[in-house]
Design a protein around this nucleic acid. Structure first.
Length: 231
DNA sequence: ATCCAGGCGTTAT
DNA sequence: ATAACGCATGGA
């Protein structure tokens, strides 16, 4: 029933911001081909921090010539933690990156890609990280739900703000399916567009001025400029 | 200075 | 089953 809205939001955001090109990272390191390992590690490093800080940690791994599972496994955990420090939570993340590196080597050796439940069984990989890895590292058609996605679909009246991860994901995927927009390229682009839009307008503290969704009448959210002290 | 950022696991209610 | 908390850096 909100089918039209979900498709329309995608089209509006795409027209507004254009293709986002999330992965691979554009830069001096391997710009010619994307590296599933780097994307996997990047998904961990990006947890609950800014992309800029995650990218700093990724660059430091490249600078140390450590962007592969074998070298990471040989490196003492404290060294790894030091290198990825800018991403925050560096002790947790170092431990988890080591674990995932071991799994990654097995996937490579077995010439297969991980399944969602397998990813979820790994400590440090929750639903969003699992889906980010599947979508951005392995091009599987799964829609990533993050805090921005919940916020945007909540404020546009498409979902309750406390909706569960898989429920919102199923809703979006099934409605995009009706419009034949259920391919991984759209999913990648849509998620990235949501993040961009959330950074510019649909922030925690909303900046609704100039929001294309508001202008086009898709979003009715009122950006209440703090009027808490009401009776 | 306070708040937030491309979350997750553990522990308390 | 859900809520609260710890993990930690860097920018606004």
């Amino acid at each position: 029933m909100h089918n039209k809205k979900i498709k329309e939001i995608y089209n509006l955001l795409y027209d507004e911001y254009g293709p986002q090109g999330w992965w691979p990272i554009k830069g001096k390191y391997f710009p010619e081909k994307e590296d599933p390992f780097e994307i996997t590690i990047g998904a961990i490093l990006a947890q609950n921090t800014t992309w800029k800080n995650a990218q700093r940690a990724i660059m430091r791994l490249h600078d140390a010539d450590l962007m592969n599972p074998e070298k990471i496994l040989k490196l003492p955990e404290e060294k790894l933690a030091e290198i990825i420090k800018p991403s925050g939570y560096y002790n947790q993340k170092a431990e988890r990156i080591k674990t995932i590196s071991r799994y990654y080597m097995n996937w490579q050796k077995q010439n297969r890609i991980p399944g969602r439940n397998e990813l979820l069984s790994i400590k440090g990989i929750g639903p969003e990280t699992a889906d980010s890895i599947l979508l951005y590292a392995y091009h599987q058609p799964v829609f990533v739900i993050d805090i921005y996605t919940k916020r945007l679909f909540s404020r546009t009246g498409i979902a309750n703000e406390n909706i569960k991860y898989e429920k919102l994901q199923n809703r979006i995927q099934s409605e995009l399916l009706k419009d034949h927009l259920n391919d991984e390229k759209v999913f990648r682009e849509y998620h990235a567009l949501i993040v961009e839009h959330a950074k510019r307008h649909c922030r925690k503290k909303p900046e609704c001025g100039g929001c294309v969704l508001k202008i086009k009448g898709i979003c009715m959210y009122k950006s209440t400029n703090k009027m808490e002290g009401e009776t």
